[in-house]
Simulated assay, not measured.
Amino acid sequence: MKHRYIITLLAAGLITLAGCSKKENLDVSNLFPENNQAPTALDNWITDNYTKPYNIEIKYKWDPFAVSTDKTLVPVKENIVIPVMDLIRKTWIDPYVKEAGLPFFLKYCPKQFVLVGSAKFNSNGTITLGEAEGGKTIQLLRLNDFNQKDEAFVKFMLHTIHHEFAHIMHQTIFYPREFKALTPSGYTGTWNNTSLQEALDLGFITPYARSKADEDFVEMASTMLTEGKDGFEKIVNKSTTATGKDMLRQKAEIVRTYFQKSWKIDFDSLQLKTATAIAEAIR
């Protein structure tokens, strides 16, 4: 099953990123890598930092079979790869390993990252910024806009990873049924017509959370982790309805309980480790 992490162009309040254009400068230097070429310094870095310790493959060289063929996409710039993956290691892998342990991470982490320079622009006015295939591969897009000091961009990229990793977790051990019962009438196939404010007022942490309960659950977990306790509370307080605030807090409590009971992970501690790592990385 493929999961897509997408945002609406209409709901600008979700997160605004620079360079939102379908026109991309196609850098062909990384388009057709030579077969059997000797490992580069970049390849060796990936081996030492991802392949050996975590058994994770990083695909950055252009592979037409690893990406959609119905969209115009460009390769990731090679000088972006190490900064991106080093930040991901420090802000996603390290907090999980410290809190949940290396055996947990090795067992459930995705085994492949596919890096793409541009985003996918969809006909319904949304942008695809990440995809996950069968719980094994995460595709990160729009990486050529990466700037480690751009807090919004960094958090959005990490949000995508936490979103997809939370899918892997709930597909292994399902989250409590009462989560689906909190806002059942709010799920809609036209979620992309929802503004962030409308979503919050209805008890959804993002417009995309309205697409279905599974997405709602992982959007909650990923937002709570990337924004930290205080940041998450600020978002909740933007809801102008008592019902919206109450639903968001009830959903957050179910997320915390799920991590503890199903995975023996102290969510508050993981949340603090993650938020601290992000703050240190972007300063």
Rank of each mutant, 00 (worst) to 15 (best):
S68P: 05
F232N: 04
A12L: 09
P33C: 09
A209K: 06
A209S: 15
S123D: 12
C109H: 14
A152G: 08
L14S: 11
E151R: 10
S195V: 07
E34A: 11
Q148A: 14
D214M: 05
A18D: 13
Y96G: 00
E280D: 15
N237D: 14
R142Y: 14
Y175N: 02
T128W: 01
S269H: 06
I6C: 08
N49C: 09
M224C: 10
E227F: 08
T160L: 00
V114I: 14
N55P: 04
I80L: 08
H167R: 07
I254N: 09
L225G: 01
K234N: 15
T47M: 11
H167D: 05
D63P: 04
F153M: 10
S211L: 07
F267R: 01
L140T: 11
T126E: 12
H162Q: 10
L202W: 09
K111Q: 11
E24S: 13
L87M: 12
P110F: 08
K71N: 13
I235N: 07
N122G: 03
G130E: 01
R4I: 09
F217S: 03
N49M: 11
G125V: 06
K22M: 11
L202H: 13
G130T: 04
A279F: 01
P95E: 05
Y60L: 01
A209H: 10
V28R: 12
P184D: 07
R210M: 14
H170E: 12
F179D: 04
R177Q: 09
V28S: 13
P83I: 08
G189S: 15
A181V: 03
T128V: 08
S262C: 06
P83E: 08
G101Q: 06
L102H: 11
R210V: 01
I278T: 05
A12T: 12
I138A: 06
H159E: 05
K90Y: 00
Q271W: 00
M1D: 10
E280W: 02
P33T: 11
F232I: 01
I15Q: 12
I80N: 10
E198A: 14
D48A: 15
D63N: 15
F267H: 01
R142K: 13
T51F: 03
H159P: 00
F259G: 02
P83H: 03
T16L: 14
T40D: 08
T69L: 13
A100D: 06
D48W: 05
L87Y: 00
E164S: 07
T160N: 06
A199Q: 07
T190R: 13
L10G: 07
E280T: 07
Q271C: 06
N55L: 03
L143P: 09
L73Y: 03
